[in-house]
Amino acid sequence: MTVVSGHAQWYGSFKGGTGSLSTKTTDTIHEAPYTYASRFEGAPGAIPEELLVTGHAGCYNHALANIALKVGVTVESISTTAELTMGTDDQGSDGHGYSVEGIHFIVKADLPGITDEAFAELTEQARALCSISKILKVPITLDATRATTSTQVER
């Protein structure tokens, strides 16, 4: 079993406080500052949900590469953007809380030598089987396009 960890620190009130986010397993992110304003108003600083979808996009790419390997499909490239939609709910202390409504992948992948149907099947399998997808309970959707118009071979 592998354990990876991250750390968040927060000081002060919900809207007026400040915090930092760090990766602990690696030193990739070291005390990146975040605030209410960076999360919800476009101010400079980290956004925890942005870190989640960045990791989710990386997880998706790796899942697709793994699935392709298992069925003998070559991967030239995979480029994935994950978009997280935030909404509101009634769970906050003032009756207004924040929620994640869903995640949408925009994938451009070059998997030469397979049909469009096989491409769609592999990209959908990766969406469902990525380890981060498995733990999230929000809708996770996908738009996947082929990066090239390579020769189609039946699989």
Score class of each variant (00 low, 15 high):
Thr54Gly: 15
Ser79Leu: 08
Ile135Met: 11
Glu154Thr: 14
Lys70Asp: 15
Thr88Met: 12
Glu50Met: 05
Gly6Pro: 04
Lys24Ala: 10
Ala109Tyr: 00
Ala63Gln: 14
Leu52Ser: 05
Gln152Ala: 12
Thr148Cys: 08
Leu21Cys: 07
His30Ala: 15
Ile29Asp: 02
Ala43Ser: 14
Thr145Glu: 13
Thr148Tyr: 00
Ser5Ile: 05
Glu124Val: 02
Arg146Ile: 00
Ser5Gly: 14
His56Asn: 05
Asp110Glu: 15
Thr28Val: 15
Tyr36Cys: 12
Ile132Asn: 09
Ser77Cys: 04
Asp89Cys: 04
Asp110Lys: 11
Val138Asn: 03
Val73Glu: 11
Ile140Ser: 03
Ala57Pro: 08
Ser150Gly: 15
Pro44His: 05
Gly16His: 00
Cys59Gln: 07
Cys130Asn: 10
Glu31Ser: 11
Trp10Val: 05
Leu21Lys: 05
Ala65Tyr: 04
Thr35Met: 04
Ala43Trp: 02
Ser13Leu: 04
Gly16Pro: 04
Leu52Glu: 13
Leu64Ser: 04
Ile114Asn: 03
Thr80Pro: 02
Trp10Asn: 08
Arg127Asp: 02
Gln125Phe: 01
Ser79Val: 11
Asp89Ala: 01
Gly113Arg: 00
Ala68Val: 02
His104Trp: 00
Ser13His: 00
Thr115Glu: 12
Thr85Lys: 14
Asp27Thr: 12
Ser79Phe: 14
Ala8Phe: 09
Ser133Gly: 02
Ala128Trp: 03
Thr149His: 14
Leu84Gly: 15
Ala147Thr: 00
Leu84Tyr: 06
Pro139Trp: 06
Asn66Phe: 12
Ile132Ala: 04
Phe40Lys: 01
Ala57Cys: 10
Phe119Gln: 00
Glu50Ser: 12
Ala120Asp: 14
Thr23Lys: 10
Leu122Lys: 09
Leu122Ala: 08
Val71His: 13
Thr123Ala: 11
Glu76Val: 12
His62Asn: 15
Ser131Asp: 13
Met86Asp: 03
Asn66Lys: 13
Gly72Arg: 09
Phe14Lys: 08
Ile106Gly: 10
Ser93Arg: 07
Ile29Ala: 15
Val73Thr: 14
Ser38Gly: 08
Leu21Pro: 06
Phe14Trp: 13
Ala109Glu: 00
Pro48Gly: 07
Ser79Ile: 09
Gly19Leu: 01
Ala43Cys: 09
Ser77Arg: 13
Ala120Arg: 12
Pro112Gln: 00
Leu84His: 06
Gly92Ile: 04
Arg146Pro: 02
Glu124Gln: 11
Ile47Trp: 06
Arg146Tyr: 03
Leu21Gln: 09
Thr80Leu: 08
Ala118Phe: 05
Thr151His: 14
Phe105Gln: 09
Gly113Glu: 06
Lys24Trp: 08
Ile103Lys: 07
Cys59Pro: 05
Thr80Asp: 01
Gly17Tyr: 02
Thr149Trp: 10
Thr123Asp: 05
Val3Asn: 10
Tyr11Ala: 14
Glu83Phe: 01
Ser93Phe: 08
His30Leu: 12
His96Ile: 15
Val53Leu: 11
Thr141His: 00
Leu142Glu: 08
Gly12Ala: 11
Glu41Cys: 06
Glu83His: 12
Phe119Asp: 05
Tyr60Lys: 10
